[in-house]
Design a protein around this nucleic acid. Structure first.
Length: 323
DNA sequence: CACCAGGCGACTC
DNA sequence: GAGTCGCATGGT
């Protein structure tokens, strides 16, 4: 018999931001649990439900200034769990200033200045990206949600009554298929105790054995994700790549999106295509050459630069970069 | 109904 | 050691 999870009083806070495009950031393929609900974003961080809303910037004096409003049922004193995740304390302008001043970067930046990196939980990030191979972002979201529903701890969700009051057409459209997440991401220990068959029931196919192996390594402390964060980049990457099913791309995603390695530069097929076309148009460059170029050309915030390139060609450059 | 999707690893030659 | 191929599943 399950105990009902009663909603606690909600608490809210407002955070002033500059050059922070919340929607672009939450949908940029870094994290997979955010859902658009009535013009807001709902997600789960650790064991907390949270709703975010970004007010449109209207001041002509500060066109890139805005407010992010957060609502949750956690005690209202300490918001570090959220500000750390959103990396609100980053000096974003300083990071952008380290980008190389070349045409591809200028174009990508002109397209969107507010794309940010998140600081996710390393286990959730690693597990999510193990699921990501040969899947599209929507499918990854579905698989992650299935895993959470089946293996995650139930958590309190926001006030549903409040949500139902809003019913204009645009909100209804945004609400489409937007199931509110009610479960925490499953722990490594919980997944380690599952069978490969059970995991496969979450539609993850051949990735099930990889996820299971990674869960066992993390749960048994054979792989210490906290320690990974303190290693040099190359050693940290090698450590993650000990997991079967974790190659360089998935390792770099985990390092960049959750372990604080801002210089990690994941190269997937799209970024490879972009680098090839934008920086090596004449000669054909091999993968190792591109990796070396990425590690030396984009500077200490290469990973953020990669996000800008990826975002730019995902939303605008698909036609220009088709093979 | 083919074809492919933010890869990886095993298998060729 | 550098290219090719199978792997599950769902969406165009």
């Amino acid at each position: 018999m399950e105990r009902p999870l009663l909603a606690r009083p909600l608490s809210s806070a407002s955070f002033p931001v500059r050059d922070y495009n919340l929607a672009a950031t939450l949908t940029s393929g870094q994290a997979f649990r955010w859902r658009a609900v009535n013009g807001t974003w709902e997600g789960v961080l650790q064991n907390r439900w949270v709703r975010l809303h970004q007010a449109a910037p209207h001041s002509p004096d500060a066109p890139h200034a805005s407010i992010i409003e957060a609502t949750t049922d956690a005690p209202p004193h300490d918001w570090r769990w959220l500000t750390d995740y959103l990396r609100l304390d980053d000096d974003h302008a300083a990071a952008l200033a380290t980008f190389p001043d070349d045409k591809p970067m200028r174009t990508a930046l002109a397209h969107c200045r507010g794309l940010r990196l998140l600081r996710q939980n390393p286990w959730e990030c690693l597990a999510s990206f193990i699921l990501s191979s040969t899947k599209q972002i929507v499918q990854i979201q579905q698989c992650v949600e299935l895993l959470c529903e089946r293996f995650g701890e139930p958590i309190r969700s926001g006030a549903p009554a409040e949500r139902r009051q809003i019913s204009d057409h645009r909100s209804a459209a945004l609400c489409r298929d937007a199931a509110t997440p009610n479960f925490a991401f499953p722990t490594a220990a919980r997944l380690a105790s599952a069978s490969e068959i059970e995991l496969r029931e979450c539609k993850i196919g051949f990735r099930a054995k990889y996820l299971l192996a990674a869960a066992r390594m993390v749960a048994s402390a054979e792989l210490d994700l906290a320690k990974v964060q303190s290693l040099p980049l190359d050693a940290a990457r090698a450590e993650l790549m000990r997991c079967p099913g974790v190659g360089r791309k998935i390792a770099d995603c985990t390092l960049l999106f959750s372990c604080g390695f801002d210089a990690a530069f994941p190269i997937d097929v799209w970024v490879e295509r972009a680098l090839q076309q934008l920086y090596f148009a004449k000669r054909r460059a091999k993968r190792a050459r591109l990796e070396h170029f990425a590690a030396t050309h984009f500077g200490p915030h290469a990973g953020l630069a990669q996000q800008y390139l990826f975002h730019y060609l995902r939303v605008a450059g698909k036609k220009e970069l088709k093979r």
